[in-house]
Simulated scan of single mutants.
Amino acid sequence: MTLKSERLKGPDGLRGFAALWVVLYHLWSALQRRDTDWVWGYVSDFFEYGFLGVDIFFVLSGFVIAYSLTGRFIDNLFVPRFLVRRSIRIDPPYWLTIVLALIFIGMKNIVFQEYAEPLPSFENIFVHVLYLQDLLGYEAISSVFWTLCLEFQFYIIFSTLLWLFFKGKNALLGNINGFVFVSVLCFVFLSVFFRFSSLSFPVSGTIIPYAYEFSLGIIACQYITGRAHINQLVVVCLIAFFCSYFYKGAIFAVVPIFAVVLMVGSAVGGKFFSFLNCRALQYLGRISYSLYLTHAIVGWATISFLVKIFSNWPSPFITVLIFLSGFSVSIIFANIFYVAVEKYFIGLSKKISRARVVNVRI
């Protein structure tokens, strides 16, 4: 297989699972105004930890961006060209979702007057447009937008580092040397420390506390493309695992490593990982960005409305129907949003000229 000859399906399937997990988490949270004590403990625990789907997204982002840029020739215009392509890909759907959130806040203020809230200020909307709300301390318009701030920070930092280290060369083709490897280990430790320890990073809203997960994805990409040894990948994963386990606990330590194992396993063709290629996960992976952006608005609003309508019907059966209704509306709306909005900008971003790339064998 050549690096640029085919699209890896494993990351798409894993992205679909991560999106599904986050959706279940938010919809389950919206359902908590009803009695859910009857739900089997393992099921409710799975839903309640769905926020960790975001951690899978961060590992995936490091992997996918590194994979897409491996072998890319780094010229003087590499950074702005890369950022323009990413902006065209993610900004318009995000901006439209901000508008959607404002509309739903207005509708909520009419339907649920007891939960009325003022519309975000113009300043708040403006800093959201620029992905600066967390850095500048503004209240979130939607509960999912904070991750996009970190994603864009990653794009800026990673593309700039590639330009600094590979200018005039093809990116990420050299093997990881000892200095880089030790630097990565130290960085991973510090990142986990600032995320989970009692000592927070001095500046809020930065990528630093989550940077180790992006790094795990990059190292995993380097391994499957033959630029990192398996020992290097294992050591980085162990550092991330044990530091996370020490400061926070098992589930926070396992999930990012779980994502790495699934990506690497699917990339090398392991049959055990073929479930990631199933049509359902591939479909969810395809619409995952639209689903992630809109579900916390549309799905949450659907469940909140139905909870109010059926407040005098405490039946578990009605509770299940409400939950399934919110889930179905989230999927249907995300599919429409993908077809009507996101898909167009995916195609438009691909029209931006790329630097030449060499074909690299795995």
Rank of each mutant, 00 (worst) to 15 (best):
R354I: 08
S288V: 12
I331R: 03
F201V: 03
S325R: 06
E6Q: 12
V357K: 12
Y245S: 08
Y49C: 13
F317M: 14
W28V: 07
P120Y: 04
S288L: 06
F196N: 04
A253W: 11
F145I: 13
L173G: 02
C186R: 01
V329N: 05
N359H: 11
Q282E: 12
V234R: 06
L150T: 13
C237W: 00
P80H: 08
L8E: 02
W28Y: 15
S200N: 12
I362M: 13
Y42F: 13
S304D: 13
P93A: 01
L162K: 06
G299C: 11
L130M: 15
C149D: 08
V184P: 00
S191V: 10
V339N: 10
S325F: 09
K4A: 10
G326V: 04
H128I: 11
S143L: 14
G299S: 09
R361A: 07
D45E: 14
R195Y: 13
L60D: 01
Q133M: 03
T2C: 13
G71Q: 00
A19V: 07
K248S: 14
L321N: 03
S191C: 10
D12A: 12
S204A: 11
S121P: 06
C278V: 11
F196W: 15
H128Y: 05
M1A: 15
S200F: 09
Q153R: 01
S244G: 06
D91M: 14
E139R: 14
N175Q: 07
I65H: 03
V203R: 01
V192R: 07
P314T: 10
L190S: 08
L291C: 09
T225W: 05
S349P: 04
I322F: 09
K248P: 00
I207G: 02
N359W: 03
G41D: 07
F126K: 05
C221S: 12
V64W: 05
S349H: 06
V260P: 00
S200V: 11
V360W: 07
L172S: 02
L150S: 11
N335P: 00
L148C: 08
W313S: 11
V99T: 10
I309G: 03
S198V: 08
L162H: 04
T294K: 07
S5M: 14
R89S: 04
L3G: 13
G13I: 09
F337M: 03
G10S: 09
Y247A: 00
V54I: 13
F57V: 05
D75I: 07
P209C: 07
V236W: 00
S353E: 14
E123G: 08
F214S: 08
F327P: 03
R227A: 09
V22E: 10
V320W: 09
I297F: 06
D12M: 09
G205E: 00
V129A: 13
N170F: 15
Y289E: 12
S159Y: 04
E139V: 11
Y131H: 10
D37C: 11
P120R: 07
I318V: 15
E117N: 00
S274N: 04
Q133K: 09
S330D: 06
A140D: 02
Y212Q: 13
F246N: 09
Q232L: 01
V358I: 15
S266T: 05
Y344K: 12
F317S: 10
A334Y: 08
C278P: 00
G226R: 03
I90C: 05
E123F: 12
I362F: 10
W38C: 06
V254K: 01
F317W: 12
W38I: 14
